[in-house]
Nucleic acid binder design. Sequence first.
DNA 1: GAATCATGAGAAAGCGTTTTCTCAGAGCGT
DNA 2: ACGCTCTGAGAAAACGCTTTCTCATGATTC
Lengths: 348, 348
Amino acid sequence: MGRGHMARRNTNRRVGIADVAEKAGVSHATVSRVMNGNAAVDPGIAARVRAAAVELKYQPNPVGRSLALGKTDTIGIVVPDLANPTFQAILRGLSIAAAQDGYRVLIADSSEVTSEEAILAGEARRRCDGVVLCAPRMADAELEELAPTLHPLVLINRTTIATNTPSLSVDYGQGIQELAQHLVSLGHRRLVFLSGPEHSASNRQRLVGLDQFRAEHPEIELELLHGGSNFDSGHESTEAIIASGATGILAFNDLVAMGLLSGLHERGIRVPEDISVTGFDDIPFAKYTTPPLTTAAVPINELGSLAWRRMREQIQQAGEASIQAQDEFSPRVEIRKSTAAPALRPAS
Amino acid sequence: MGRGHMARRNTNRRVGIADVAEKAGVSHATVSRVMNGNAAVDPGIAARVRAAAVELKYQPNPVGRSLALGKTDTIGIVVPDLANPTFQAILRGLSIAAAQDGYRVLIADSSEVTSEEAILAGEARRRCDGVVLCAPRMADAELEELAPTLHPLVLINRTTIATNTPSLSVDYGQGIQELAQHLVSLGHRRLVFLSGPEHSASNRQRLVGLDQFRAEHPEIELELLHGGSNFDSGHESTEAIIASGATGILAFNDLVAMGLLSGLHERGIRVPEDISVTGFDDIPFAKYTTPPLTTAAVPINELGSLAWRRMREQIQQAGEASIQAQDEFSPRVEIRKSTAAPALRPAS
DNA sequence: GAATCATGAGAAAGCGTTTTCTCAGAGCGT
DNA sequence: ACGCTCTGAGAAAACGCTTTCTCATGATTC
């Protein structure tokens, strides 16, 4: 009995707009108006409403708002691995920048499972006003197909052919060339590139950069060793690196370099006296390794905040489809102590 | 003209339940039923609906669902600083564990601004089904008052008096005692504790642990130096540490220890030959520093997943208020290479 | 003083779902 | 055959808010 079949629910219910309206003796429309300052409302009434609101500790339900407004004030980010400092930094920069504009970020960790990325991104998009996607291993075709469905979208380290999705990328090809150049100018003649995951887009970029390097430096011996993208894979490559006889090692990234550093240390190989090692990314820890790591610094903190700026641009100009910026960062070689001239030219 | 004043919107509209219903020739109620498998529905009709759904690529709008269901399948986490590996690890563990149960996580970084934490937590709570709160510096009174309003809540490294909010904490007091004990048993007699942020709850715990240690070891000289919680503060303390004349340093955490390590290295002080240094937390990088860091390992990956488990318990037993578990982890001392017997007993 | 206008508040539709309520029709027993 | 129960589908309410529409009231103007 009672008026509605759900009347009972109203006990222990969270305070809603209706409660405020009742207390202030106005309609909920008016409450909404004063809360959002949308239309002109009599100052006296407005004051009464506001008083009622604070007294009841009224806080608008964001889900209701979202449904009515068609926006969630939330953006999603999908990353392949939250354990990677690079993605941690992007997430952090994004979160802080977005927060400044009143947006929150929802995170989706694909745990390196490439096949899940598209699904996660889609789900995130439905819950959020936009998505920033880090999917280094997703196939180009899949990305191309997925991108338009995600629309407010910004890509990290990937680009699409269609020019309407902004992307931020790092010129890994140039960075790795500069690192190689650095080693060569120190006197190294035998290098090895300890490569990253096979299907990683950024690894491919490094590879083409190194091809170019080879073309320009035919005198340099540059070997390629397969590895992964984390500590352990760097550590596991220690023996192979030693066996290679190279004096200069280009590790896929800082994590790999650090794993390698620790492996070499265990084996009693001195860095940089016996072998020079470079990383990539300049994660916060890179300058605290022993020896401090020579690496290619990518402006990791800016990436996140710029990602947000690009996202915001899209959200604001909703509709008016325009060509989006494709930002590319040039890494800057950060010479520290893990590289030096090779001690003696080894017999070749 | 047209039927409603918003009819125009229906162009370029996302496909909704109504579209599926129309295509399948049923009511939207029926579509909902087959999508959720809630009530029995004729297999033939169900098939028709499902076909229509896939053909239109229908994906239910989560905001609509959330409003109707009163849940968002999302939990929030508020952390003081996403740059800290400890919180990164908690976030990661939480995110992965929650994802396994179909939940997502929304992140709120308070950027160390204690006064924002309560607000952020409140906002997060309104958007989510629960909140996990890391607020090491929030005043006890404020926490006590805030906790009930956040209800499905799990606290990290904080506890409340009211026994109905689960909390996960690390026994920092015990851990620091064991580290001190370790140094003493190596032969150190002059120690300094390089403390963390003044109002940090976990710092206070370390302090009481050390008081107890002092009581048990009146013969040991234990000085206290004020510091912070990150790399830089550890680095900045280098001179003070050297000046202290101590041979065994208990750093607030691994970050501080690493900063100190690098500062000592720059000054030519050898670790562990001249000075022994310990950290706390055992962040992933701790075993790759040079020398590898002796530290107290907290099961950082478990923290996140256990936080989710406790959260899930609360979400499931919604209503039936029961006493919640207060989990406490005992850190395990991880002896590596940054600690050793002091070279010579310095003149005292 | 009557007609016009501006102001501002309430009624109601709409956002996209789920779920209750209700009722038509089929199947069954007697 | 009649009425009964049962199955299953549609109508409509509900979730909590925003916003359009509408209309009353008081102010303004000729």
